[in-house]
């Protein structure tokens, strides 16, 4: 294929010898990155599970965690995952405007999720549960916080992608970015499901 002399140099964008489709490489690279992120979260989950008993006589999860706020957060994040999927669909139909609107909605939902999370943390700190309180709370804040940082990074990333699309339109390159971003966003959703069940439901129930 690569050696075939039939391909003229005007096609070298896709077929030049030794040149591989960059979107293809990026997508695979990103999948592997997600594998590493899965391992990171697994390590944090393992730490949380090992240390969940280490409340050191202080407040426990059941004492302070409130499930109601979490249900709203979950709803926001799950919906944002759905809207990011819709954005990708719009992208495949080359509907730039629709796609951007859906991305903005995704971002707003994500921001809402973060707002609730920050509020929850402030509430917990007010109730006397901080990073320094005990091993349980250290691992709680680190695990949930790491997910929160991922969501924050995702938001900034999305803003950069929207700006680039507005400037350059939909090219192979910007399309690739949206695809990868949406993959990331779904991944955060999946992690949240585990957080919800292992951290919140199992603690409170």
């Amino acid at each position: 294929m690569a050696q075939s002399p039939a391909h003229g140099s005007d096609h070298h964008d896709h077929h030049a010898a030794g040149h591989h489709d960059p979107q293809d490489l990026k997508l695979l690279g990103f999948w592997i990155f997600l594998v590493t992120d899965v391992i990171m979260f697994s390590t944090l989950f393992a730490t949380f599970i090992v240390l969940r008993g280490g409340t050191d006589g202080g407040p426990t999860g059941a004492d302070l965690l409130e499930i109601n706020g979490i249900i709203i957060s979950t709803f926001l994040l799950l919906t944002s995952s759905f809207t990011s999927g819709v954005a990708v669909l719009a992208m495949h139909q080359n509907k730039i405007k629709q796609m951007i609107i859906w991305l903005v909605i995704t971002g707003l939902l994500g921001a809402g999720f973060l707002y609730l999370e920050v509020n929850e943390f402030l509430h917990l700190i007010h109730e006397g549960a901080t990073l320094q309180t005990s091993a349980f709370w250290s691992s709680f804040f680190t695990l949930v916080g790491t997910h929160g940082v991922h969501v924050t990074v995702g938001l900034f990333w999305m803003i950069s992608i929207i700006i680039q699309i507005v400037r350059r339109g939909l090219t192979d390159d910007t399309k690739g970015k949206v695809t990868v971003f949406s993959l990331y966003w779904h991944f955060l959703d999946a992690v949240w499901i585990f957080l919800l069940s292992i951290v919140y439901l199992m603690e409170v129930m």
Partner: peptide
């Protein structure tokens, strides 16, 4: 993650690996 947790212990006074506070 291990380095992050050790950093949390040292920088923020968390209790992942400390003797007190239920750390392990």
């Amino acid at each position: 993650i291990t380095m992050l947790l050790l950093f949390m212990d040292r920088f923020f006074g968390a209790h992942f690996f400390t003797l007190d506070g239920g750390g392990n």
